[in-house]
Simulated scan of single mutants.
Amino acid sequence: MTDQPVLIYTLFGLSAEAKHVARTLIEERLIACANHIAPIVSQYIWEGEYCEEREYPVLLKTVESQAEAAMARLKTLHSYDTPAILCWSADQCDPDYAKWLSGQVDK
C-alpha cells in the first residue's frame, strides 16, 4: 500500500528562490515534485500596512508521512518571516501516480 499523497502550497517573492527551495526539497527526498504556477498578485495587511505584491506560487507534492518534515524544512529554507505553508490530503489520486509519488520520497 502506498502512503497517502498530500499537497503543500506556498508562495515566494522571487522565482529563483522558489526553484532553489523546490530543488532542495526534491534532492532531500522530502517531496517528489513541484509545480511552479504563473506569478500572481497577493493583497494583504502586514504589520498594519496594506501590501500588494507579485508572488510565485508553488505546489509541492509529497506523502502524508513526509508532510510534517517537508513543511518544517520549507519553513527553514523560506526567506519570509511568516510564509504561507498550507497542506491538504489528496483524497483521490490515480493509483499509479500515488505509487510513483510514494517511491520518490524517503519514509
Rank of each mutant, 00 (worst) to 15 (best):
W46S: 02
D81M: 05
I26W: 09
H78D: 00
I31N: 00
P95I: 09
W100A: 05
H20A: 15
W46D: 02
Y97Q: 00
I45G: 08
L86Y: 08
E47D: 11
V63Y: 07
P57Y: 11
W46F: 04
A70E: 01
Y44I: 01
K61Y: 11
L86R: 04
K75Q: 15
L77P: 04
S79C: 06
Q104S: 14
E68V: 14
A38T: 14
E68C: 06
L101G: 10
H20Y: 14
R54M: 12
M71P: 02
A90H: 03
L60W: 04
Y44L: 02
P95W: 01
S79N: 11
E53M: 06
L25D: 07
I37G: 00
P95R: 10
E28M: 06
E27W: 00
E47I: 01
E55F: 07
Y44E: 03
E53L: 12
L30Q: 06
H36P: 00
L74W: 01
E52P: 00
A34N: 01
M71G: 03
E49Y: 07
L59N: 08
G103E: 10
S89D: 09
W100R: 00
R54C: 12
G103H: 06
V58R: 01
T82F: 02
C87V: 13
P95F: 04
E49N: 11
D81L: 02
P95G: 08
A38K: 12
E28F: 07
S42M: 00
P57H: 06
C87G: 07
R23T: 10
E27Q: 12
E68G: 05
T82K: 03
H20I: 11
V63I: 15
G103D: 11
I31C: 03
D94Y: 10
R23E: 13
P83F: 09
S102Y: 10
I31H: 03
E47K: 11
R54F: 09
A72H: 09
H20E: 14
A22F: 06
P39V: 01
K75P: 04
V21F: 09
E52L: 05
D81K: 14
L86I: 12
E28V: 03
S79G: 11
C33V: 03
D91Q: 10
L25K: 04
C93P: 00
S79E: 07
L101W: 08
L74M: 02
A72C: 06
V41R: 15
D81Q: 15
Y97W: 15
S89H: 10
Q43L: 13
C33L: 05
A34C: 01
I85N: 05
S102G: 10
I45S: 12
H36G: 02
P39C: 01
G48L: 00
